[in-house]
Design a protein around this nucleic acid. Structure first.
Length: 697
DNA sequence: GCAAGGTC
């Protein structure tokens, strides 16, 4: 009988790769136990039973069931017991339990990070028994290639990485203590003050993220536009109108701007220098998930969620690699040539793929970011049949980006000519700027998605006269900073180290779901603002990125043996003890402020405009409590003064515009149906604007 | 009914 060793992996794909790499013949026996993969591999004198987790199989649950706070007692339990939505994990635990029978050795082969170490530890502790921990070893690999995996097997650590495991447990427990207690404190303040129940969540990542949105809103609202002046000039060379840039893009004083115009008006400028610079533009690296989401937002206005869902579908249908990656690298083990052979079979890529295949060496541009578990997002070379809409565009973006990353740099020639005017004893400088693409390199692969980059100048020479065709100064005003779009908020979180590639999109979604933020420009709501105001008063730490920094520091100290989980938990409970008692003391005030904000927000989002029937009431969206149907009704109805009402679309989302129809005076609403772009319509079905044209029913 | 982190 061979000795049986249980190898615990983090996810099914990893288990498959590990089993294949470690099996002597590269062909392990594969089983499917009700959706849970299991592999038996032979390696020398050992029989390896390779099992898979599905991320975390164990999580934290409160001891006892009361929905109140403070709560400091908790245990690690099977994830399916803590959360109904994790029902799938039950089968994984059961399958691992069966597979572990008769095992005498154990290997943790999860991802080489804190979470991975914890996943395997919890499985061994709770499924295989405490005794298994003493026998357990740790495989350390950073890519799932055969070479790396074999090396990891042979150089296995003789024990589990306890400092890392302890740091991971601490992260979970501290986040749970803060999140559960503060969420309950907020939700219960509202309930006790107004009787309304609404989940008002907050946590280490939600807090600072919401605070960024609030701070940006304050900047937008408090922005004072200050005037500045720009010089607009134009010349005509060889019959072409070309803009001239004045040396100062913004002029602070009106008199200074007018002086320039007065001095140069009617004069000719002279070209004093022409400088030509060749600039190489390296190809972009292949996509990480964040890069893909930002690019899809910028090119197609897809939200990060839409892009992630689409990438997930493309991955499950085998057309692209695993999308939840932070890597911008394609390792040499990936069969780039094979992928291009595949892409060549798709007619829109035939020419491009073929031109790359002619190269003797194909080396993808590598970005700086890496991911221990996955390469950058790339096509697999299997050709999708019919894909349309979002998936087709996301797929095209990925394929073109991948091919672009494999090609050469683009070469541009930038020309800048200095045009001077001597007038009234002073010297004024303007510039003519142009650019020419000398070699298109990667640009021809990525063409539809490359930003337009200026145009070419006619041939210019020193001493050439440049007559001003147009010259004037224009007053402009400084603008407030832009609100976040879904991509820029994710980028800020990434830069600040908030959340992970797998959780950031979910956390932003949560802020929307809670009603803290709204709209495509991520505006803070009254509710979100009031939540922040009250947290600022009683728990300012939860709004600060410093909390994440200090947690990271503590985890580092735990890994170095300078601090312990018990210390970290004691510290957390001490902080919570005092903040939660302060919170409780002011519960009524906090709760009524929040309930006031919810009422204001509801009134605002249901307000349609002045009633065209009576002229003085307000039209609002009213939902019939019995039937759930909605319609527009006048606020004077209950005073018995006005019965004006309009039917509303029953499906989709309605947002108010506060604009009235120019034909009939009824309010215009914006309707959004799932998967369609929003459209604006007048709510009056008898409106003259709807006659004569085609009907949209 | 809650967090943030895995994974699908």
């Amino acid at each position: 009988m061979k000795e049986r060793i249980l190898v615990v992996c983090e996810k099914p794909t990893a288990a498959r790769r590990i089993a294949h790499a470690l099996d002597d013949d590269g062909a392990p026996e594969a089983y499917d136990e009700g959706g849970v993969p299991l592999f038996i591999a032979g390696r020398g004198d050992f029989e390896l039973v390779v099992v898979s987790a599905l991320g975390h199989l164990f999580s934290i649950a409160q001891d006892g069931g009361k929905w109140t706070y403070p709560v400091y007692k908790y245990s690690w339990v099977p994830a399916h017991d803590a959360d109904k939505r994790q029902a799938r994990t039950k089968r994984f635990i059961q399958a691992i339990e069966r597979a572990s029978k008769g095992a005498t050795g154990y290997v943790s082969a999860c991802d080489l990070d804190m979470e991975g170490s914890l996943i395997a530890y919890m499985v061994l502790l709770n499924v295989c028994g405490e005794g298994s921990l003493n026998e357990a070893k740790r495989m350390r690999y950073s890519t799932l290639t055969e070479r790396d995996l074999i090396r990891a097997w042979e150089g296995m650590s003789p024990t589990l990485d306890y400092p890392l495991i302890e740091a991971g447990r601490t992260r979970h427990e501290v986040d749970w203590l803060f999140g559960i207690n503060l969420t309950r404190a907020l939700s219960l303040s509202l309930k006790n003050a107004s009787g309304i129940f609404k989940t008002l969540s907050i946590g280490r990542v939600q807090g600072p993220t919401l605070n960024f949105v609030k701070e940006r809103e304050v900047e937008v609202k408090t922005h004072v536009p200050t005037p500045f002046w720009v010089i607009k000039a134009e010349t005509t060379i060889e019959g072409r109108r070309i803009p001239l840039d004045y040396t100062e893009a913004r002029i602070g004083k009106k008199s200074d701007a007018r002086k320039v115009v007065r001095a140069c008006q009617g004069k000719d400028g002279v070209i004093s220098t022409v400088s030509t610079r060749r600039v190489e533009q390296p190809p972009p690296p292949p996509f990480s998930l964040g890069d893909l989401q930002r690019e899809a937002f910028s090119k197609f206005r897809y939200t990060p969620r839409t892009t992630l869902n689409s990438a997930e579908r493309l991955y499950l249908s085998t057309h692209i690699s695993y999308p939840r990656t932070s890597s911008q690298k394609i390792p040499p083990t990936i069969d780039v040539r094979g992928i291009l052979e595949g892409l060549r079979r798709r007619k829109e890529y035939t020419r491009l793929a073929a031109s790359l295949l002619k190269e003797s060496k194909l080396r993808p541009m590598q970005g700086a970011k890496d991911d221990p578990a996955h390469p950058a997002i790339h096509p697999t070379g299997t050709i999708p049949g019919m894909i349309t809409g979002v998936d087709a565009r996301v797929y095209d973006l990925i394929c073109r980006r991948f091919m672009a990353s494999l090609s050469g740099p683009a070469l541009r020639e930038n020309v800048s000519a200095k045009v001077t005017v001597d007038a009234e004893g002073s010297n004024y400088a303007f510039f003519l700027r142009g650019t020419k693409l000398v070699e298109d390199g990667w640009i021809k692969f990525y063409e539809p998605y490359v930003k337009e980059k200026g145009s070419e100048l006619p041939k210019l020479s020193k001493g050439q006269k440049v007559p001003f065709a147009k010259l004037r100064s224009l007053e402009r005003y400084t603008k407030p900073p832009a609100r976040f779009n879904p991509g820029s908020l994710l980028r800020l979180m990434e830069d600040e180290g908030l959340g992970t590639k797998a959780t950031r999109t979910d956390i932003v979604d949560t802020l929307f779901k809670r009603g803290y933020v709204k709209g495509s420009t991520t505006e803070i709501t009254d509710l979100g603002f009031t939540i922040i105001e009250n947290l600022e008063r009683y728990v300012p730490d939860i709004l600060s990125v410093e909390m994440t920094r200090s947690l990271e520091e503590d985890m580092g100290r735990i890994q170095r043996g300078e601090f312990s989980r018990a210390n970290a938990i004691t510290k957390t409970v001490e902080v919570l003890e005092s903040t939660l008692s302060g919170f409780k003391a002011h519960e009524v005030r906090i709760g009524s402020e929040i309930s006031g904000a919810i009422t204001r927000e509801e009134e605002r989002s249901s307000y349609l405009g002045r009633c065209p029937g009576c002229g003085d009431g307000h039209l609002r969206i009213i939902v019939n409590k019995k039937t759930g149907k909605r319609f527009a009704g006048c606020s004077n109805y209950f005073a018995g003064k006005c019965t004006t009402s309009y039917p509303l679309p029953q499906r989709g989302r309605i947002t108010t515009t506060e604009i009235s129809c120019s034909e009939c005076g009824a309010p215009i609403i914006k309707a959004t149906l799932r998967g369609m772009s929003p459209w604006e319509l007048c709510i009056n079905i008898d409106c003259p604007s709807k006659r004569g044209g085609s009907t949209d029913e």
